[in-house]
């Protein structure tokens, strides 16, 4: 009886396997190249952050990205996190016009920003952004590195992925071909050209260099706590592993006379 039962089970399992294999589909062809594999200061478990690259990245964001993209979750005071001094932060904040409340007639007015101001948004709202940009809405960049599969490599890929479309690929007006964008048709024109910004530290502003710097900056805007988190994590995890070892030793000693 048992034997019949077991062989019946085995037959069932074999049948299931055959059914699975026979229905496996041919793998779909995908024309998206593998994501670039950049070397990031923040990758790995104990990444850290290249502050100079992050500061250069802010400069790219400030001069290029922020013309279209909002950054709602950031305040100018946060820039202390990439090593900017209070004086630098004040100067940057004062260089932009942000909403500062109402005038005596109750009308909203703008004025120079302070370190407490939110990053300036290029458009008052999403509808205004779409109206100005041919119907396309530039995504908020605060969390963009965390909000995309592939993370930093994907964002770097988009910034450097404006290549010639393959023969026969029709790119309609107002769209651009990007190797890494899903479907390849992106509404953002190539944002970076060699020399688009001038770096204060003399670094040559090539497209890959600017893309690398701005992605470093965007990693920080999405994960401002990462460096502190990883440093604290080493101590916490080591402490807990030590405690595990200690309690295990005490447990062994306590139980030893029971065996």
């Amino acid at each position: 009886m048992m034997r019949v039962f077991r062989s019946a089970l085995r037959a069932l399992a074999a049948g299931a396997l055959v059914a699975l294999i026979s229905t496996a589909p041919a793998l779909a062809q995908d024309d998206t190249p593998p994501l670039p594999n950049e070397s990031w200061s923040f990758s790995g478990l104990l990444g850290g952050l290249d502050l100079a690259a992050a500061q250069r990245g802010f400069w790219v964001y400030y001069n290029v990205c922020s013309n279209c993209h909002s950054m709602h979750q950031l305040h100018y005071r946060d820039l202390a996190g990439i090593g900017m001094t209070p004086a630098e932060i004040k100067k940057i904040a004062a260089s932009v016009q942000v909403p500062v409340g109402l005038n005596d007639q109750g009308q909203p007015i703008e004025g120079p920003g302070t370190p407490a101001s939110q990053f300036r948004s290029p458009f008052p709202n999403d509808t205004a952004a779409r109206a100005a940009l041919n119907g396309a809405l530039p995504p908020d960049l605060s969390l963009i590195v965390n909000a995309r599969d592939g993370g930093a490599d994907y964002v770097y890929g988009i910034l450097t992925g404006f290549v010639k479309p393959p023969a026969g690929f029709n790119v309609p007006a107002g769209k651009y071909y990007n190797a890494y964008f899903p479907g390849h048709l992106i509404a953002m024109p190539p944002p970076l050209q060699d020399g688009a910004v001038t770096y204060a530290d003399g670094t040559k502003a090539t497209v890959p260099q600017m893309a690398h710097d701005v992605v470093t900056f965007l990693y920080w805007t999405a994960n401002p706590e990462a460096v502190q988190r990883e440093q604290m994590g080493v101590r916490v995890v080591l402490f807990l592993l030590l405690m595990t070892g200690l309690t295990y030793g005490v447990k062994r000693k306590l139980w030893s006379h029971l065996h």
């Binding site: 478990l45 965390n146 909000a147 995309r148 599969d149 993370g151 988190r229 990883e230 604290m232 994590g233 080493v234 916490v236 995890v237 807990l240 592993l241 405690m243 595990t244 309690t247 295990y248 005490v250 447990k251 306590l254 139980w255």
Partner: peptide, 28 residues
């Protein structure tokens, strides 16, 4: 005592996720 061993090991695993891979199980 035996539960304490497990609790320390459990917290170590939990802390590893929290501090090093906090979004591993999340969705972009």
């Amino acid at each position: 005592m035996k539960d304490s061993v497990g609790i320390c090991a459990f917290l170590a695993v939990w802390a590893f996720l929290v501090f090093f891979l906090p979004n591993l199980l999340g969705d972009p």
